[in-house]
Amino acid sequence: MAVKGAIVVDIEKCKGCSVCIANCPTNTIALSNEVNGKGFNFAIMANPDNCTGCTNCATVCPDAVITVYRVKI
């Protein structure tokens, strides 16, 4: 059974450290081109179709800004 995931990033709290990107096994996440109120490029789902909702990104996120959703399809 396939799974499909998605993440929601708390943009204003994200510091753009990129640890989530390095730990994403499906190359879903990238940094935004724009910056948030603090001047950080923030994490975005650059390739949303790739996301499996594995939670790796949220697990390593130092600022707990990622919420992960997953459905079985």
């Binding site: 949303p48 909702g53 939670t55 949220a58 919420t67 959703y69 997953r70």
Partner: peptide, 18 residues
């Protein structure tokens, strides 16, 4: 499947602890 359909409370698997 649309992202909107995935991002629903019942599908949440990980988030910030209260």
């Amino acid at each position: 499947m649309d992202i909107k359909d995935i991002i629903k409370p019942e599908n949440k698997v990980y988030g910030k602890t209260p």
